[in-house]
Write a protein that binds this DNA or RNA. Structure first.
Length: 428
DNA sequence: CGAATTTGACCGGCGC
DNA sequence: GCGCCGGTCAAATTCG
């Protein structure tokens, strides 16, 4: 917990790449700071990607049916030569995705394609923005991403987003996609304060790699922490706060705080934010810079590839991670991070990663963006929840250079951690 | 020998 | 009410 108190930002690595900005810019042509997508693209109904028609009958279709919207096909092929986010170098370009609370992640795991690159334009039917074409968001590059926007009040909105031509450096690891669910409205009365209130944020894949220090209500769960004992061997990578593990009858009953998500999985009643990353890798469990302990494995319907369950081994950290290979492409490893790491990666780990694995969060700034401020009470989506993107970091977002060479987007930081971040040197 | 993984059982939610 | 399903537990096993 101590890690969370104030200085976590100093632990972020430099946010050097403009890539995220470009990507974000694609989503929001408004040059006036942060904008709510729900405001910018009210009631949008994205037209199905023509390419998706070519994959009828696939998992994507199943998921589309399940989610209630069409899923654009995955376009894999853009590989960053030096991408080494994970120990496995084969990574795909990564789009940026933010999903509001109430949107189940499970479907994405089963059909990661919907997260991947797609066509070159974003069509936003009914979109009306001062600075952006009503129905189209063009990109400055050739990389694309498909966005699934969830909103409790809007229809599911798959949005394709073009990514800039690797605006960042080549060594920026690129995940195929990142989903971030957030929420805010249903925060648990008890835990809500633990995480700054914020709407969905558009974050780069690197964000997922952040060793972020966020409170996650662990105060109430200290007694539940038993699985981690290695503070100096952190290997975490992504964070999302998850409520205490579901207990059996004989165990502490916290069912009153639980609720089912879209596919019936027990989740915290007030939703939990999660981040889904998709990485092309030959390994079943690519190294993401954090240390995980596997606690289960299971084959789930819709994917012959088993899903593995991991927990962060860091003491007190309750971040969980689900990893499975895409049913459509075994090279794609889809990982869902549930919870927020309340600690920073240990020095040795950072060193190791930067020298051996070249984990991005160590080498480039993107990874050091504040990770998803996930409240254990956020993220769980209900079957009827609608997609929503509450916030898009506009092009030209102000980056802040910290005293440790850390650069973060001020907008993001303030939005995500406004309740407890400490101004960086030179900042007013 | 301690840590990590494996794996079958168990649990609870959801749909029928 | 029952069966299915995803997630978790925990004893056994393997690994370093």
């Amino acid at each position: 917990m101590s890690d969370c108190d104030g200085n976590f930002m100093d632990d972020f690595s430099p946010l050097t790449s403009p890539r995220i900005r470009d990507a974000l810019a694609m989503l929001d042509q408004n040059d006036n700071g942060l904008n709510s997508i729900s405001e910018t693209f009210p009631q949008t109904n994205i037209s199905p990607d023509p390419q998706s028609e070519q994959r009828s009958g696939g998992l994507r279709d199943r998921m589309a049916a399940k989610l209630g919207f069409d899923i654009p096909p995955l376009e894999i092929g853009r590989v960053s030569p030096s991408a080494n986010l994970f120990s496995n170098p084969i990574l795909v370009s990564s789009p940026i995705l933010v999903i509001s609370p109430g949107f189940s992640l499970s479907p994405f795991l089963q059909s990661p394609n919907m997260l991947s690159n797609s066509s070159s334009q974003v069509n936003y039917p009914s979109v009306s923005t001062p600075d952006a074409p009503p129905e189209t968001v063009e990109s400055s590059g050739d990389a694309h991403a498909t966005m699934i926007i969830s909103n409790n009040n809007l229809p599911h909105q798959p949005i394709e987003v073009d990514l800039p031509p690797q605006g960042g450096s080549d060594d920026i690891p690129t995940e195929n996609s990142v989903y971030i669910t957030s929420h805010e409205s249903n925060a648990d009365p008890i835990d809500a304060p633990l995480v700054p209130s914020f709407d969905s944020e558009v974050v780069s894949e690197a964000d997922v790699m952040n060793p972020i220090s966020l409170e996650s209500g662990s105060k109430d769960n200290d007694k539940d922490r038993e699985y981690n004992q290695e503070e100096d061997k952190v290997e975490d990578h992504n964070v999302v706060v998850e409520p205490p593990s579901r207990k059996r009858k004989s165990q502490v009953n916290t069912e009153e705080n639980m609720v089912s998500n879209i596919i019936g999985v027990t989740r915290p009643k007030n939703k939990t934010q999660s981040v889904i990353t998709q990485v092309e890798s030959v390994e079943d469990h690519p190294d993401d810079g954090f240390r995980w302990r596997k606690y289960g494995q299971k084959v789930v319907t819709g994917n012959a590839n088993p899903r593995s369950y991991y927990r962060c081994t860091y003491t007190g950290c309750e971040v969980k991670k689900l990893v499975e290979k895409s049913v459509d492409n075994v090279k794609l490893v889809v990982a869902t991070y549930d919870g927020i790491h309340e600690h920073v990666p240990p020095p040795e780990r950072i060193s190791k990663s930067s020298t051996k694995n070249q984990s991005t969060w160590v080498r480039d700034g993107l990874s050091m963006l504040p990770s998803l401020p996930v409240n254990r009470n956020h993220g769980v989506m209900n079957r009827n929840d609608e997609p929503k993107i509450d916030l898009v970091i506009p092009d030209g977002a102000e980056g802040i250079q910290g005293d440790k060479g850390v650069t973060v987007f001020k907008e993001i930081r303030e939005r995500l951690f406004r309740n407890w971040y400490q101004p960086l040197d030179g900042e007013t």
